[in-house]
Design a binder for these strands. Structure first.
Length: 521
DNA sequence: CGCAGAGTTGAGTCG
DNA sequence: TCGACTCAACTCTGC
């Protein structure tokens, strides 16, 4: 029996390594490639750079589908409202999509699946967003997510390398498949315009990282060609403040699924073949395993994007301080390194991983003592590669709330950037108001004598803000506050309900708490 | 159970 | 310029 099939693109905006799309083409007479602009995911709350990236990715996808005599149908609305109409109108018999582990997506997909069942539509989903089936990683670890990278490494060692990516469909795959569409469809299901996504009136910077699978594969090729660079890659050795990115900037493409993580993995493997190379956690493979690490945490740990209710997260008495938060968000903390990073983030939608460390530490445990959840929201808005699991996981890491516990290691908003950019060229690029400051004062302009400030044409307190905190003092105080938060956790876990239930354990270790949650479900 | 060692990416000082 | 050491001190793992 030939099917009428919808392949639903959500993430996974690509044709290569798309097993759900291939499944759609099996015994298929009519294929409808669909993307739904969801009010929750694609409204104006999401940053302008992300929306522009999405348009690029959809255009590219449509273009590739047209080469296969198909096209992309973009619909508007809630999936649970949209699908029943489509099922009826198109006489759909099969729905395929890529599995997505985010709580919002799981909930949505469950609703859509039950609607499909009511319409006698067969549903097929495939895992291709992550290297592995995340559930398998947890199974291999006794049903709980690994809390250390080492453990994850041991697990994936047992699982073997990730699956090899599969090819994009060719014209031969499409020879019995039609995508019915009339002129009317063109108007109804077109790619969103910048105006539709509210970008027309906004001042957008240069598009440094255009969305789309073709651009992703081009970018991948470009980096994979540099054999020595790939083999020597060590993340901590790359610079957070180089004038052009010191890493691949493939992350936005992986987030949107323009690039398959498994394709990236195996292309790196090809380069490594027979050569000496770096290893996880610092290598390029290692970076993809970090992604897997946080994905596993996000699946196995309840309330992963929150402090309260999150069993692995240290409970901290963060301050509510809208002024500080706004200063951080709007790049006016008075610390040029921090403000330059936040400017790059807002303008370009991407900052280096270590730059994220610097600003995240500054917002939370280092200086401003503001909850990592606030930072998480702002990153989600501004980062092209804002990924639910990675954003939550990394914010917990940086704020020493989970996974990382050496809270006494604090980044200096002055010293850290100097290591890789003594002259402050990065600061000058993103904060032109400071461009005439001599290197001696570029990281701490408030220390420059009045004459130097005059010569630079920038008076601190007038043209550029005074630092909002005194880092030396406030960071010391904050280390003590972290110490108290950690001490409180140890005593709290001694009072855990497990003990009351008569289990002979003095404490429920953090490691065991997620397991308990999972079993309850 | 207790303890040693490790932990992608700290800063500052000294030689 | 770079490595070793100190600062003060966390959790998780593995033995």
């Amino acid at each position: 029996m030939a099917h009428v099939c919808i392949h639903w693109f959500r993430k996974g905006l690509r044709l290569h390594d798309n097993p759900a799309l291939i499944a759609a083409l099996k015994d298929c007479k009519e294929l409808y490639p669909v993307f739904i602009l969801e009010p929750y995911l694609h409204n104006t709350q999401v940053g302008i750079n992300r929306r522009r990236f999405l348009i690029g990715a959809l255009k590219d996808l449509d273009c590739s589908l047209r080469k296969l005599n198909s096209r992309l149908f973009v619909l508007r609305g809630k999936p649970e409202d949209v699908f029943p109409k489509l099922f009826k109108e198109w006489n759909v018999t099969k729905l395929t999509y890529e599995y997505d582990t985010e709580p919002y997506s799981l909930n949505r997909d469950e609703k859509v699946t039950s609607l499909a069942r009511k319409h006698a539509v067969e549903v097929i989903y495939k895992i291709s967003h992550t290297l592995y089936n995340i559930e398998r990683i947890m199974e291999e670890n006794g049903g709980k997510p690994p809390l250390t990278y080492k453990r994850l490494q041991a697990i994936v060692q047992k699982l073997g390398p990730p699956k090899k990516p599969i090819s994009a469909p060719h014209l031969e795959n499409m020879k019995d498949v039609k995508t019915p569409c009339s002129k009317k469809f063109e108007e109804k299901y077109g790619i969103p315009t910048p105006e539709e996504l509210g970008l027309e009136s906004t001042s957008l910077g240069e598009e440094l990282f255009p969305g789309g699978e073709q651009e992703a594969l081009r970018r991948l090729d470009e980096h994979v060609k540099k054999t020595a660079w790939v083999c020597c890659f060590e993340k901590p050795q790359t610079s957070p403040n180089s004038l052009s990115p010191s890493t691949t900037v493939l992350s936005p493409y992986i987030t949107f699924g323009c690039l398959s993580a498994r394709t990236f993995w195996w292309r790196i493997t090809e380069v490594y073949q027979g050569r000496k190379h770096s290893n996880p956690p610092v290598s390029l493979h290692g970076q993809l395993l970090w992604r897997e690490f946080f994905y596993t945490g996000s699946v196995g740990i309840n309330d992963f994007n929150k402090m309260e209710g999150n069993p692995v997260c240290i409970q901290v008495d963060w301050d509510t301080n809208p002024e500080y938060l706004a200063a951080w968000r709007e790049a006016r903390t008075g610390f040029p390194f921090i403000d330059a990073i936040m400017t790059q983030l807002r303008q370009e939608g991407w900052i280096h991983h270590l730059a994220r460390h610097a600003v995240a530490c500054f917002l939370t445990r280092g200086d401003l003592w503001i909850s990592w959840e606030e930072g998480q929201k702002i990153f989600e808005d501004l980062l092209l590669d804002g990924d639910w699991a990675l954003n939550a996981g990394n914010w917990q890491w940086l704020s020493a709330s989970a996974f990382f516990h050496q809270f006494f290691r604090v980044y200096s908003p002055i010293a850290f950037g100097k290591k890789t950019d003594k002259n402050g060229d990065y600061i000058k690029k993103y904060l032109p108001v400071l461009k005439k400051f001599p290197p001696k004062y570029i990281y701490e302009p408030w220390k420059a004598p009045r004459s130097v400030q005059h010569a630079a044409g920038c008076i601190v307190g007038k043209d550029y803000p005074h630092p909002i905190v005194q880092h030396e003092q406030v960071s010391k105080k904050n280390i003590q506050r972290m110490k108290e938060a950690y001490a409180k956790r140890s005593s709290n876990s001694n009072e855990s309900p497990i003990k009351e239930q008569g289990v002979k354990r003095k404490a429920l270790s953090v490691y065991e708490m997620p397991q308990k949650k999972i079993r309850k479900e």
